[in-house]
Structure formats: C-alpha cells, structure tokens
Design a binder for these strands. Structure first.
Length: 224
DNA sequence: CCCCAGGCGTCCA
DNA sequence: TGGACGCATGGG
C-alpha cells in the first residue's frame, strides 16, 4: 500500500465515523437521480429540490414525460434551480436522447466506458455529471470528482496544485478498491466535509478535521 | 454590498 | 490545453 492509499483509507474511515451514512443519491430512482444531477450543476441542492418538487407535481420526473413537454413549461418549473434556460433545454435534449436510445434499460447494457462516452456526448453532461450518473444511477464503480474534492485534495497535498479532474479521479481510483458502496459514500462524505470546511475562501480551514491527514510539502515527486 | 453553490460549453491565446 | 466568461436563482 502506498502512502496515499493509506491516507485515503484513513480519511474515509475518519469521515465515515464522523458523519455516518450519507444515503446518496437523494432521489427516488435513476430517472430522478439523473434529472437532479443536471439540475444541481453549480447550484445548491436546496434550490434543486424546489425544481424537482415542481416537476413531481406535474408528473414530469420521467424522461418520456419530459421529452413530450414544451420547453417553456420546463423553464417555468425548473426556474428555482438556476440557469433555467440552459438546463431546461439540456434536460429535454437528454430526455429525448435517452428515449431514442431505448431508455435506461438499454443504456444499462453498455459497458461502463461506452456508457460514459455516450453520456459525455450529451450537451450539458460533463465529467462530473457523467460520473455521478454512472455511480449513482447505474451503480458503476466510478469515483466522482467535484470542486470540493479537487480543493480538498490540493489543500491537503494529496494532489498537485495543477491537478485536473482526470488526475484527481486517478488518485482515488488507483488507491482505493473499486467498490460502488465505497465510492458512493466517499464522494458524499467529501461533499459534506467540503461544504463545512473547504469553501473557496476557506473559512474555518484551520479547523478542518482532515488537517491531520495533510501531507507535508514534498519536493520533487508528488502524488500523481 | 459581496460571496457561493454537488458544472458546463464556448471562445480565444 | 488552459484560462476567462456567461449562465441564474436563492441563501448566508
């Protein structure tokens, strides 16, 4: 086991003990999960819940229904979740693409790499959303990276300052067993700790419970 | 008033 | 390939 693997293992145990089960993704089924994944892009979950409630009230939490709904109506319903013009269009496009692909049941048959590529082809689905969908809707062992994870990794020197999404994903993937349950919980826990201790302007940074897991400044070779 | 949110696509050097 | 910028509502 490498040093980083030991650190990540300890970090997971500490977060898990401190915060307990996160029960992600907060959705009633894969369709709602995917819709929520699009709506929560750069948006607080609280606002997403309002949009999801509006969709639910109108029986629009399925791709078949969304594909058949006028854009203007979608816009009005998801307005609280922000970027509503972009998101309504992208949600409708995605719904149509999924319906045309034969539904989630068909997509489920794709191997993970193929499915990821399919998702990334859809406008509005980038790496984080694609990986979230793979993990939380399709139960594939894919580690999700988000802004918090990147920030946390860099702050504690698990990642080089220049690390991007792919680098960060590699770090976690290569140093942890590829288990859906673990990846599910770990990402959720990182978001939880990130919200509390790893905002961009880092308020409370010094109180961070993960400070004991920071690596010292290492000259030369760094983690990935 | 300012900052931030479980990103992404586009544009430009 | 990488950095800036627009997208938008709602809360602290």
């Amino acid at each position: 086991m490498t040093e980083v693997a030991n650190i990540l293992n300890a970090v997971y145990n500490a977060l898990s003990a401190a915060f307990g089960p996160q029960n992600w993704w907060p959705a009633d089924g894969p369709e709602e999960m995917i819709i929520g994944a699009v709506l929560t892009q750069n948006t607080t979950w609280k606002n997403v819940e309002k949009a999801l409630a509006n969709l639910r009230d109108n029986n629009l939490l399925t791709f078949a229904a969304i594909a058949d709904t006028p854009l203007a109506e979608l816009e009005a319903l998801i307005r609280p979740s922000g970027y509503f013009r972009q998101k309504s269009q992208r949600l409708k496009d995605l719904a149509e693409a999924i319906v045309n692909a034969g539904g989630l049941a068909k997509l489920e048959n794709l191997a993970t790499a193929k499915l990821r590529k399919w998702l990334l082809k859809q406008k509005g689905i980038g790496p984080e959303t694609a990986d979230s969908i793979l993990l939380y809707a399709f139960a594939r062992p894919v580690f999700v990276i988000d802004a918090y994870t990147l920030r946390i990794g860099k702050r504690h020197k698990w990642l080089a300052e220049s690390a991007d999404y792919a680098k960060a994903q590699k770090l976690f993937s290569q140093n942890l067993p590829a288990e859906v349950r673990l990846f599910n919980e770990f990402h959720a826990l990182l978001v939880q700790i990130g919200k509390n201790f790893c905002r961009p302007r880092n308020p409370r940074c010094c109180d961070c419970p993960l400070s004991q897991f920071s690596r010292p400044l290492i000259t030369g070779k760094t983690s990935l």
